[in-house]
C-alpha cells in the first residue's frame, strides 16, 4: 500500500528554484525525517505538500491526489505543525476558539478538553490568549489544533527550533507518543540531525532544493554515502567529543547560503571535499549531474563516487 507519495515535485519563486524535482515516499504509520541547512528548501517542500504554495509534480496520499481539485476532506487529512509558535496562533483568539475552529461537528467543548488532555495541557488554558502561554504550551496548543482536524499525515516543520532544550524534550516525547497512539504518518523536518535521527525511521537529506541522500535513519547516520551528509553528520555537536583543531582534508569552509555550482555537473562539486577540486581524475563531476542516475536507484546518494567509495572501503 502506498502512503504519502511526492513525485517529481518542484517549486520556484521568481525563476529561482527552491525545490528541484524531489521524489519522496512516506509509508503509512512511519516517520521520515527531512534534514537540511537553511535555504535547503525543506520548509518550502513542506508547504508544497500541504498545498500552501504552488508546485509542479504530484503529491498523493494512499493513491489519492492532493492537488487543488482534491476535496476539503482529503486536504484536511494532511496537516502541518508550524515552526514559530509565536505566529502560528491568532493572538486575538482564546485557546478554545483556536481549537474549536479546527473541529468539525458538535460537542466541541468536550472534544477540545480531550485534545488538551492528549497534549498534556490543563483544560484551564482554554480561556486564555496565546500571549499568556509559554513557548512550550503554545506549541502544544498548535499540535492540539492540528490533531483536531483528525489528520492521517502530520508534517512537523522545525517544531522545536524555537524552544529551549527541556521544553523541546517535552514536545518530542509528545509527538512520538501521539504518532504511535494514533498511527500517524509523519514527515519530520529539522535542521538538527540528532533530533531527526531520534524521531525518524528513515532520513532524507536536502541540499539546495534536492534530496541528495535517503535511507534508513540508522544506516544513513552510521555510514553516510554522500559527502554532504557526511559533513552534516560530522558537524553535529556531541557531548564531550573533543575535536582536533587543525583542519582536516574533509573540512568544508563553505556555507549553505552559497548558491550551488552552475552548469551541467554536480551542484555540490564546488564545496565537495572528495570532488574534482580536491582529487584528480574526478572530471565526471564537472560534466554529469549525478541526480539523473540517482533517481533510478532507491536509498542511494546522489553522488558519482558514493558507490566507488563504498567499494573501496
Amino acid at each position: 500500500m502506498t502512503g504519502l507519495t511526492v513525485d517529481h515535485l518542484s517549486v520556484s519563486y521568481g525563476g529561482v528554484s527552491a525545490v528541484d524535482d524531489v521524489s519522496l515516499e512516506v509509508r503509512p504509520g512511519s516517520v521520515v525525517g527531512l534534514v537540511g541547512e537553511s535555504g535547503s528548501g525543506k520548509s518550502t517542500l513542506a508547504a508544497a505538500v500541504v498545498g500552501l504554495v504552488g508546485y509542479s509534480g504530484r503529491v498523493s496520499w494512499k493513491g489519492e491526489l492532493l492537488d487543488g481539485r482534491a476535496g476539503r476532506g482529503a486536504r484536511r487529512r494532511v496537516q502541518l505543525v508550524f515552526q514559530d509558535h509565536r505566529s502560528s496562533l491568532d493572538p486575538r483568539m482564546t485557546v478554545a476558539g483556536i481549537i474549536g475552529e479546527a473541529l468539525s461537528g458538535g460537542n466541541r467543548d468536550e472534544r477540545s478538553r480531550r485534545l488538551l488532555d492528549l497534549v498534556a495541557l490543563d483544560p484551564a488554558v482554554l480561556d486564555r490568549l496565546p500571549g499568556s502561554l509559554s513557548g512550550g504550551q503554545r506549541q502544544r496548543v498548535a499540535i492540539a489544533r492540528t490533531l483536531a482536524a483528525e489528520p492521517e499525515v502530520l508534517i512537523a516543520d522545525e517544531v522545536t527550533a524555537s524552544l529551549d532544550v527541556s521544553v523541546q524534550a517535552v514536545v518530542l516525547n509528545l509527538l512520538r507518543d501521539i504518532q504511535r497512539e494514533l498511527g500517524l504518518t509523519v514527515l519530520f523536518i529539522s535542521h538538527n540531525l540528532a533530533v531527526v535521527r531520534y524521531m525518524s525511521d528513515e532520513v532524507a537529506v536536502m541540499y539546495h532544493g534536492r534530496i541528495v541522500e535517503r535511507g534508513a535513519a540508522t544506516e544513513v547516520i552510521a555510514d553516510p554515502q554522500h559527502p554532504y551528509t557526511r559533513t552534516l553528520v560530522e558537524a553535529v555537536p556531541q557531548l564531550g567529543k573533543r575535536r582536533p583543531t587543525e583542519e582536516g582534508a574533509e573540512q568544508l569552509l563553505l556555507e549553505s547560503s552559497q548558491s550551488p555550482a552552475g552548469g551541467a555537473g554536480c551542484p555540490f562539486r564546488s564545496r565537495c571535499p572528495v570532488g574534482p577540486r580536491v582529487l584528480a581524475g574526478r572530471d565526471l563531476c564537472e560534466h554529469e549531474d549525478p541526480f539523473a542516475r540517482a533517481r533510478s536507484r532507491r536509498n542511494e546518494a546522489a553522488c558519482h563516487f558514493a558507490e566507488a567509495r563504498r567499494a573501496s572501503c
Binding site: 583542519e247 582534508a249 573540512q251 568544508l252 569552509l253 563553505l254 556555507e255 547560503s257 552559497q258 548558491s259 555550482a261 564546488s270 564545496r271 571535499p273 577540486r277 580536491v278
Partner: peptide, 16 residues
C-alpha cells in the same frame, strides 16, 4: 551574493 570558496586546502579561486 555568493561567497568565495575558501577550502584551506585549495587556492581561493572560483566561483567569483
Amino acid at each position: 551574493m555568493a561567497e568565495i570558496a575558501t577550502l584551506s586546502v585549495l587556492p581561493p579561486t572560483a566561483p567569483e
